[in-house]
Design a protein around this nucleic acid. Sequence first.
DNA 1: ATTGACGCTTGATGCATGTCAACTTGAGTT
DNA 2: AACTCAAGTTGACATGCATCAAGCGTCAAT
Lengths: 225, 225
Amino acid sequence: MGLAAEDVERLDSIIKRSRPLHRGDHLFRGGERFRSLYVVKTGSVKTYAPSEEGGEQVLGFHLPGEIIGLDAIDKSCHACSAKVLETSAICEVPFQRFEELATSIPSLQHQMYRLLSKEIGQDADMLLLLGKKNAEERLAAFLSSMSSRLSKRGLSPTDFYLSMSRHEIGSYLGLAVETVSRLFTRFQEDGLLRVDRKHVEVLNLPALEMMAGSAPSSTHKQRSN
Amino acid sequence: MGLAAEDVERLDSIIKRSRPLHRGDHLFRGGERFRSLYVVKTGSVKTYAPSEEGGEQVLGFHLPGEIIGLDAIDKSCHACSAKVLETSAICEVPFQRFEELATSIPSLQHQMYRLLSKEIGQDADMLLLLGKKNAEERLAAFLSSMSSRLSKRGLSPTDFYLSMSRHEIGSYLGLAVETVSRLFTRFQEDGLLRVDRKHVEVLNLPALEMMAGSAPSSTHKQRSN
DNA sequence: ATTGACGCTTGATGCATGTCAACTTGAGTT
DNA sequence: AACTCAAGTTGACATGCATCAAGCGTCAAT
């Protein structure tokens, strides 16, 4: 991404590779001091805000190639927790060293700005989703997003396993588990998907994307505020 | 904020100050090329995503001291539009120059990371709000936020004018105008506020903050997913 | 194989909030 | 003043989705 080979090497040298982590392991917990960013190599991770009395709000799912912890730079302290959803390989990037390195490599610094900015843009998309879209559009958007993110990594955009539970999907999308379950059933009935537990086959990706693109399916429009 | 006087001067020298802008003026529109960040000096600005057929989703309100345009760094192109809500003084910071400057001032670079990170953290708060909170909690959170942001700038935390319409508040909070209106009325009946058009007096700030802090008021709890 | 726990699905019901409609108010214009 | 128009308020009604409840498949441990 526009870095000299020598710089890539320098960057590589500060990255820590840990042994594979397993389902349920934490990368960090809310309240801990922020030291490193984490990059998913393989597997998947969820970030969530533990709320009082056991409830939790899922803030995001992180697939290979994606970065975790950007929100903690500001306060030098993690506001959320990150938990591994399946056996995963994660790289740790000590932030202070990274920052020193970025100072001497302008193009790295620029990439970092872009990365942070991209995250902000994605959050804005999510805001729009939660603010304006109905249940059906939300799940369609979620599946479209999974599809495109996986295909970016060379995986099938139409055949994949969801490492998160229905409950976690619901929390992420601001829906009840039951609603998510019903929608999976409906999407299958409508010939959009074939679903078996965590295994999803997308049969009609364009239709899903259309649905996600804020075009209510029923003739009845709601939340047009 | 940890910058040498000399560096502050250098930063100052790249900032453009424009004549005051007026209600309805645009800082930029979605699709335009990204060149500068904007800092609100006085007044207020809203950012919004124009959707097809005239509808718009309000993405944020920006008060004095706050920065606009961070989401556009990634694609070098604005994804949303920014419109001035009242007569305002706005500073323009050409981003390319800023970036060059940051390269030679490590502490400025660090501040920039913090700024971007902070934005991400705030978006996460908003995600939580839209995903989990009911109408009452949302408006309480909105008012608490306005209160604290204004007081940071030395303005009254309990007596202020809202420069945005009820419709815009509704769009921002994912609620219908009517719901917002009813809530203002209810808050007033409950002795939390005194409201007259755009003028708001907060009579019981702690109660508002309590309400916003994801504690459902009615005994009936909902959206505990 | 049995048990238990958990995640998922499905149906029935209720409520919060969206939608529709009518009215009021305030601000600007003539 | 009288008029106009947008913004806000309020009431009546409709509905999408949460909630409650029950049942079922799956998996791990015994």
